[in-house]
Amino acid sequence: MAFGPFLLLALMEGLVTAAVLALAASGLALVFGVMRVVNVAHGEFFMLGAVIAWFVASLIPGPAWMAFAAALVVAPLAVAALAALADALVLKRLNYDPEATIVATIGLLYMLQQAALTVYGPDARPVAAPFDLRLQLPWFGYSGYKLFVIAAAAVVLAGIWALMTHTRAGLVMRATQVDRDVARAFGIDVDRVYMGTFALGAGLAALAGVLIVPITQAHYLMGGDPLLLSFIVVIIGGLGSLRGTLVAALVIGLSDGVISMFFSPTLAKILATLLVALVLVFRPQGLFGTRT
């Protein structure tokens, strides 16, 4: 094959990465934006989404699409409920102190990882894709499911955007983001907003986990990479900015796909982590954010 097909394949794979990443990262960005909490356990919510999807798929008989559809609903809800619990039991009691919540979510990360290892085991297990469709491109066939992932992510993100800009819930969240004391003075139940935001952020990560599991299999350590990449995306996109996060997810996903294809995935990650550190040092508003 010539260079062109490789590039196309790299871009397609990059787009899938970008789509999943955009979902996971927008959850992280939402939590950071509204609550000023850096959730280190975010990758574990992603992992739980995938693992729960496996359990759901193995419990529900019948065609693959039914099991997958059930997982798509059950896993994010279950993870969101868990996150709400973590918020009530831990984060709220820490008064959302930025540094203390980082330490606490690191603790949460370990607990969730161990729980998955104990209950689910150390093996990587696949979940069948809901449908088996190959699209024939000029040079190679491409998985129709991967295109579905891209489309699904786009729909969900559009939904999140509509939620934030066109609904009362979004208004309340944005008000809390600007100033929680003022929001409280205007009668907003800040505690409930925080719990809802944390649950929503975790649910988005879990949803990304469910979408990825037919492609990569579920494993109890799978949360590390998405956590790192989400961090990278959120920071480069400008902490807490949803639009910046989307742009950054696209850039990082595509360049990760391309660099990984032509160079080494490890090198791609080294460059990305260094980029994040330097962005935080020299341009804390992010590459795509504006200084406020």
Partner: peptide, 10 residues
């Protein structure tokens, strides 16, 4: 043991 470490942190 990971659970223990996590719980201890929290």
């Amino acid at each position: 043991w990971m659970f223990l470490v996590g719980a201890a942190l929290v």
